[in-house]
């Protein structure tokens, strides 16, 4: 019987796209803020959660995934913020973009004892928040439901995040007469690699 031979061996060349990653922070003054897109997502108990449920609170909205190593740096910070500020009208929402859904998320949440509400994201929410090209992407949303700042990647440290939250918690609402003095003083830390 004839045994076919292959003329040559093959390799697949791969060029990683790591070099194009960029990180950074975008902040907006109170009067220039835009409304955070509304969403309707499920939490681990199957309960539907809307962003608008949190109107009146300062929200730290963190898009993350179990496969995102750098997200692990921030999660303990956000757990601490949840504990420290929840009684002052603050909440952390973690939106996981894991394709494998709760099967991947639940063990991770349990292992890390995550104390804030975790939601399962989808393509729709990803698109409405600008595509989420990289994770983590974290937004600080003011009490009016407007985006105060966007942080792509681990763009700033724990204390800077905390200061930004404290400032938002203390800020008057946009409709108040002194709103123009309520601008955030977030630091910008553009990354390089």
């Amino acid at each position: 019987m004839r045994v076919p031979k292959i003329a040559s061996t093959f390799t697949v060349s791969v060029l990683l796209a790591c070099a194009v990653l960029t990180i950074g922070c975008t902040k907006r003054t109170a009067k220039n803020r835009k409304a955070a897109p509304e969403f309707s997502l499920k939490d681990a108990n199957g309960q539907t959660v809307h962003l608008s449920d949190y109107k009146g609170k300062v929200v730290l909205l963190d898009f993350w995934a179990t496969w995102c190593g750098p997200c692990k740096i921030e999660i303990p910070w956000f757990m601490e913020f949840e504990t420290q500020f929840k009684d002052q009208g603050f909440a952390v929402l973690g939106v996981s973009m894991d394709e494998d859904g709760w099967a991947a998320i639940k063990p991770y949440v349990r292992d890390r004892k995550m104390n804030y509400r975790v939601l399962l994201g989808d393509d729709k929410v990803g698109t409405s928040y600008g595509g989420l090209d990289a994770l983590p992407t974290t937004l600080l949303i003011d009490r009016e439901g407007n985006i105060a700042s966007v942080h792509e990647g681990v763009a700033m440290g724990k204390e800077e995040f905390k200061n930004a939250i404290v400032q938002l918690l203390g800020s008057p609402s946009v409709s108040a007469p002194v709103a123009s003095r309520g601008a955030l003083a977030l630091l910008t830390s553009p990354g390089s690699r």
Binding site: W67, C68, A134, V154
Partner: peptide, 8 residues
């Protein structure tokens, strides 16, 4: 991924 972020 790098130190700061991951692509999907």
């Amino acid at each position: 991924c790098n130190n700061k972020e991951c692509l999907p």
